[in-house]
Simulated assay, not measured.
Amino acid sequence: MSETPPAASADTIVTVLGLGAMGLPMAARLSSEFTVRGFDINQGRRDLAASAGVERFDSARSACSGSGIVLLAVRNEEQLVEVLFGVEGVAAAMAAGSVVILTSTVGTGAIPVTAERLAGMGIGFVDAPLSGGPVRAREGDLLILVGAEPAALESARRVLEALSSTLTIVGDAPGDGQAMKTVNQLLCGVHIAAAAEALALADRLGLDPDKALRALEAGAAGSFMLSNRGPRMLEAYDDGGAEVLSRLDIFVKDMGIVGNAVRAAGLPSPLAAAAEQLYLIAQAQGLGTADDSAVIRVLAPSRLTD
């Protein structure tokens, strides 16, 4: 069993590992309430973090030494395991009683063994995947879905509350948060694909895209993803496309996690499978690093109403 982590306090040092699209705004947000350290393998991201009030370190281990909480914003399950337990893994530099918060969507597969290994080192683990995007991360307006033992959760609570407007405790076991986020991503992935189909059809029917989007948002067909991604879908045809706020290949990963989960559960998922194929086609066409709104270009490579 892990030792009971100390309750987070105002002087808690928080280390953020991974200063990408979500990690950097979270680190900036937390820097107003905590001493925040940061590390990313990209020098440019470390420089941006320093300008946002985050203490910059040249290695993940040095950034974690002495920190009460280490927040991980990694890409996938493989990075999670490597960052914690690899050759330069940070778990070895963390003190007993400290806590790891995983904010990434990685699926449930590696979570039980990760929690068990950390517990053997006296380190708590909070499974806390989030949703909301970079702007909401900077504003502390995220949805965070938590699975964690009560002691670890209490140590991490002030950090989680600083980042979220909706903090939902799904269960008391690591993995519960990932399970709920998988369900969330099924809906998000399908909603983005559906929004792309609707706006592509509006264009082919000769409707003004901006007016069509506003009309759809105002009625029963409206959704968060339509309102959030819709304007960016209309920008997908501009030179350079829309600003990258959520990379398309993230949904390739996430819909893969969804597919694995539904197969393991023995459930059919025809809508999720169709959406996953759309993202895979987009990635194959070289759109993986584009904003996920660019998926509309798979359905309609060009607009007719320009």
Rank of each mutant, 00 (worst) to 15 (best):
P174S: 02
A151T: 13
L234P: 10
S165Q: 04
L145A: 09
S223H: 06
A179Y: 05
L167M: 10
A220T: 14
K181G: 11
S131Q: 03
E161C: 12
L201N: 04
A152S: 15
V183E: 04
M225D: 12
G175N: 05
A242Q: 03
G241Y: 01
G206D: 13
A200E: 12
A202P: 14
A236N: 11
V126D: 06
R204D: 12
H191A: 15
E243D: 11
R229W: 07
P231D: 06
M233W: 08
Q185A: 08
V183H: 02
M225E: 15
D141E: 14
I123E: 03
A195E: 09
L226E: 11
A236I: 12
P150K: 01
L186Y: 13
A220M: 13
A242D: 07
S246L: 03
A196F: 13
A137M: 07
S246G: 14
A193K: 00
P134E: 02
T182R: 01
S246I: 02
K211Y: 08
A212K: 05
L226Q: 09
K181M: 11
A151H: 08
L142W: 01
G147R: 01
V135Y: 03
E197N: 09
A128M: 04
E197S: 09
E139T: 07
T182P: 14
D208A: 15
L205P: 13
L186T: 15
T166C: 04
S223G: 11
L226Y: 11
G133S: 06
E243Y: 00
A242T: 06
A151S: 14
D176R: 02
M225F: 15
S155D: 12
R229K: 13
A220R: 07
A152E: 14
G241P: 01
G171S: 09
V190S: 08
P231W: 00
M233H: 09
Q178V: 10
V190Q: 10
L130N: 09
G219D: 10
L160E: 08
E149V: 13
F125W: 01
L142A: 05
L143S: 14
G124Q: 04
R158K: 09
G124F: 03
E161F: 07
A242F: 02
G177M: 02
I144W: 00
A152C: 12
L207K: 00
H191Q: 15
L199H: 04
L142T: 08
T168W: 05
A198I: 15
G147W: 05
S155L: 08
E139I: 01
L205T: 11
F125P: 12
P129Y: 00
L145R: 01
R158V: 10
P134V: 06
R232Q: 08
L234A: 05
A196I: 15
D208G: 14
